[in-house]
């Protein structure tokens, strides 16, 4: 059995960076992590396989990602005015498949939100499709399957 430590470390570093950017609301840098045709998806139905033809919590192409960031940074949305930083951690990282063209990786994705003292945990399984790009990657897909997605959520003022 061969373990590609180098790939694992590169993927791990990329995902940690992505998570840290979002916790620190470095949204402009986050937008640069994406391929133009990449999609960001937070499904309602975590068992769906055709998200384009399914209603989701979020299904963002490049344009919608840009608009979402403008909304979060613009200061016009009352729900973002009081939002406190999030804390997220990534574990159980597993490379599902890897080729020269793309790497599919799955992980446990835990986000904590502080809503005015009410600490809300959002456990999820996340799936990333990464495209190698010089010495790092670009995001082709980020899929965040929240444990409570098909039951109920609260309103969200950040990016998972």
């Amino acid at each position: 059995m061969t373990i590609n430590n180098q790939l694992f470390n590169q993927v791990s570093e990329f995902l940690s960076t992505e998570a840290d950017m979002l916790d620190h609301r470095e949204y402009q840098d986050w937008l640069k992590l994406w391929q133009p045709d990449g999609v960001y998806i937070v499904p309602v139905d975590v068992n769906a396989d055709d998200y384009k033809n399914t209603l989701n919590v979020a299904y963002d192409d490049e344009h919608m990602r840009q608009l979402r960031v403008e909304r979060l940074e613009g200061g016009e949305a009352v729900s973002t005015a009081v939002a406190m930083p999030t804390v997220r951690s990534i574990s159980a990282l597993r490379i599902v498949s890897a080729s020269d063209d793309e790497v599919t990786v799955r992980c446990s994705y835990m986000l904590y939100e502080n809503k005015e003292g009410d600490l809300r945990p959002y456990p999820a399984k996340a799936e990333f499709v990464l495209v190698p790009n010089s010495d790092s990657f670009l995001l082709k897909k980020k899929l965040v399957k929240l444990m409570r997605a098909s039951q109920y959520l609260a309103t969200i003022s950040y990016i998972f």
Binding site: V42, N53, T54, L55, N56, V57, A58, Y59, M64, L67, R68, R71, A77, V78, S79, T80, V82, L153, A154, T155, I156, S157
Partner: peptide, 22 residues
């Protein structure tokens, strides 16, 4: 219709979270 719905509605829409805050 689904994309328009996601744009405004729901927990990560551009409308609902602000309604919820109010």
């Amino acid at each position: 219709r689904m994309r328009l719905h996601e744009h405004f509605q729901g927990p990560m829409g551009f409308g609902t979270p602000d309604d919820g805050e109010a």
